[in-house]
Nucleic acid binder design. Structure first.
Lengths: 138, 138
DNA sequence: GTTCCTGCAAAAGCTTTGCAGAAGA
DNA sequence: TCTTCTGCAAAGCTTTTGCAGGAAC
């Protein structure tokens, strides 16, 4: 997606398309590995030396409120963020700490939702060992 | 479950059944609403005035490591804990903040797990509005 | 020109660490 | 007795807040 498109996306959501917000959103779109706030900060500070942690948090909150970004609450230590806002699953490897995405059939997922509850977001997650780590420990 | 039984459960896991650990575990078993560390602390301090936050964290970590308790990473602000260690689902109400448990068929859940990944724990969670809050806003 | 955003510094809140004394085996 | 656990105080870390200057419209 070009920077111009991102500007348009943010504008449509009623939020000002500042350079910082575009940078954060662009980073999330191009890094689907669910970076933490700190990871985003470190990466962006290299590219744009004037960039504060506060701005990362501000931008992330704004993007989450606008529905463009999701918080992934799989890890207790830090918050992780994800620009994929459709329902999908996560796999946290307890050895290497990586978070993997996988596709989830929305219809099947919705079948789990108890009746009477109005769902706005759904997620499946597993904790275990990823194929890479399984190979190394063998 | 009697206190004696709890002592046995902890002993079997190879951890010392101290009064504090038993109290924490007992609290979690009798409060299935996924209390946070702080909630547990406040409740237990009333019952046993000498009880430090450190001990809560120590005990919780020990119980989690022993596999008797699960961390529920649905909420970003605080950690929540759950003595139900079988696979099940959680529903977080975005209005009242309550976390609801619901049953999940393990076999169906496992079908979501991508091949090559070795799952040790599974969870489905939804965010939305619970029946109570839906009623009030109508 | 007005409104909203950024970014520094400082604070806040949850959790962990170090260590001396106490409890459990 | 020896090991392990508790609990106080202090530190550590991520995240939030207050506010002045700056960018966007």
């Amino acid at each position: 997606m070009s920077e111009c498109d991102l500007t348009l996306v943010l504008s449509k959501k009623g939020i000002r398309p500042t350079q910082q917000r575009i940078a954060v959103y662009e980073y999330l779109l191009s890094h689907p590995e669910h970076p933490s706030a700190d990871t985003i900060y470190r990466a962006l500070v290299e590219k744009y030396p004037v960039f504060s942690r506060t701005t990362i948090y501000n931008s992330l909150n704004t993007l989450v409120e606008a529905g463009l970004v999701r918080q992934v609450n799989i890890c207790a230590e830090e918050q992780h963020f994800d620009a994929t806002t459709s329902d999908h699953g996560h796999f946290l490897c307890s050895k290497c700490g990586k978070i993997y995405d996988f596709e989830v059939d929305s219809v099947s997922l919705n079948m789990f939702c108890p009746s009477g509850f109005e769902k706005t977001q759904g997620d499946v997650f597993f904790i275990g060992v990823c194929p890479d780590c399984k190979t190394f420990t063998k």
